[in-house]
Amino acid sequence: MALAREDASPLFAGSVAGTLRLIFYLALAMVLMVLDHRNGWMWRIRYAAAAVVEPLYRLAGMPATGMRTLTVAFADRQRLTEQNQRLGEDLLLANAKLNRMAAVAEQNQRLKELLDTQHSLELNVQLARVIGVDLGAYRHRVMLNLGARDGIRPGQPVIDARGVMGQVIEVLPTTSVMMLVTDPNHAVPVVIERTGLRTMAYGSRDGNQLSLPTIPLVADVKVGDRLLTSGLGGRFPPGFPVGEVTAVAPAPTGMFLEAHARPSADLNRSGDVLLLHDQAEPAGPPAPVTPMGPPADLAPVPAGAPAAAASTPAPPAGAAR
């Protein structure tokens, strides 16, 4: 440090060494960025550094949790009573509906067993809390308080009481990062509830809405139509509400209709979310079957090396079966 003192801050001319150092660091940063963008090994570093990083997340999330606790602590009694009553009514209503549905669901189950399909209406979920951490403006990412140690895997769909929120994209030991459906890089296959038209809902670049840019011009789409997940692609299970169409207009290209939708999940305020497990039912063509043939140990022994040939073919034959 003391060595750098004499040329530390000349009034006008900069030193060549400083510029060289800048170029070195900029080049290093660029190499890192390119490597990270190409290989995505940033997650591996973050996973390794999680022991340091995760306590910081908890620390940074504390103001948000504190605010939430404070609002509860200072909420007046009347509002809490009202809220409690409203929740009780909601629960009563939901239970009544569930009881009526139970018979139908059971019947549905029996019929499906008869048809030999494997769709089930049961939900295998895990409750998670959102950690209030800002992962950068306009990034549409949310941090959850469960991670690899709780059995979370990348790709799990996340829902709340009203609909689909997004999916887990990255998992640390005790936290995970979720991408919201409104992220411009996110797409979810949807079906319009009223007409059964299948299309894709992308996130949009300006804030909290979805855009459906590829609806055929002749399709019947109206403002107010509800969007459900279609289950195509196998990531999101079918039948969950995604959003509600707010605007329909011809796309600038003139080849499609473009619709905008408001996500039905409460993306800004959700404190508790549900992570779905084992929901992805494989859609699409079945996995390619390994080619069948006579077992390898029946193959004619090559004339050259009988001893080696007799010992080696056994494991592949076992693996193929």
């Binding site: 890192l32 960025m33 990083v53």
Partner: peptide, 11 residues
């Protein structure tokens, strides 16, 4: 590392 976006961007 904290932000988790692109390693080297803020650097």
């Amino acid at each position: 590392l904290l932000d988790g976006v692109l390693l080297g961007e803020q650097a």
